[in-house]
């Protein structure tokens, strides 16, 4: 599928799923679109529906109520879709490890392709992650 991935890498469309985060990762993701970081220069665009997306950004811990929704979103997405887990909550559950409402790690719910740790990750870190993803797709 390398020919397909190369075409995909020219303009990745991103859909953002907030799986019970503290909002900060989401704000930093939106921040990437605004003039200072301007991630549209890589052809990246935030879309409103998972059916249009090539990349699914997930942030937060996965709680009991939102877990079936994430599964459903993933099943609705056109394949191939790349799942990027943003924030420390995704990679290690962060401060919410002892929460009674946390149910599963995200990798048990959907297959994750990339982790970007940080609480929240700096926009520069997210841009680096995205650049690496584009690099891998171009191989």
């Amino acid at each position: 599928m390398s020919w397909y991935n190369k075409r995909l890498a020219k303009s990745l469309w991103v859909f953002h799923v907030s799986a019970s985060p503290c909002n900060n990762c989401d704000i930093e993701i939106l921040d990437l679109l605004t003039p200072k970081y301007d991630i549209e220069r890589f052809g990246i665009k935030l879309v409103g529906s998972i059916r249009h997306a090539d990349v699914m950004l997930v942030s937060g811990i996965v709680n009991q109520k939102i877990e079936p929704r994430i599964k459903r979103l993933y099943s609705q997405a056109p394949k191939p879709i790349f799942v990027v887990a943003i924030g420390s909550c995704m990679s290690s559950q962060g401060v919410f490890r002892e929460s009674y409402n946390r149910c599963k790690e995200v990798k048990e719910v959907v297959p994750v392709d990339m982790w970007i740790p940080g609480c929240p990750p700096k926009p520069e870190a997210m841009i680096e992650g995205v650049a690496k993803l584009i690099g891998v797709l171009n191989e």
Binding site: S18, S20, N63, E98, S99, Y100, N101
Partner: peptide, 14 residues
């Protein structure tokens, strides 16, 4: 609501 519930008050008591 309830999609974002993380149980802060319980964690804080730990």
């Amino acid at each position: 609501i309830g999609w974002m519930h993380r149980g802060h008050e319980y964690i804080s008591e730990q």
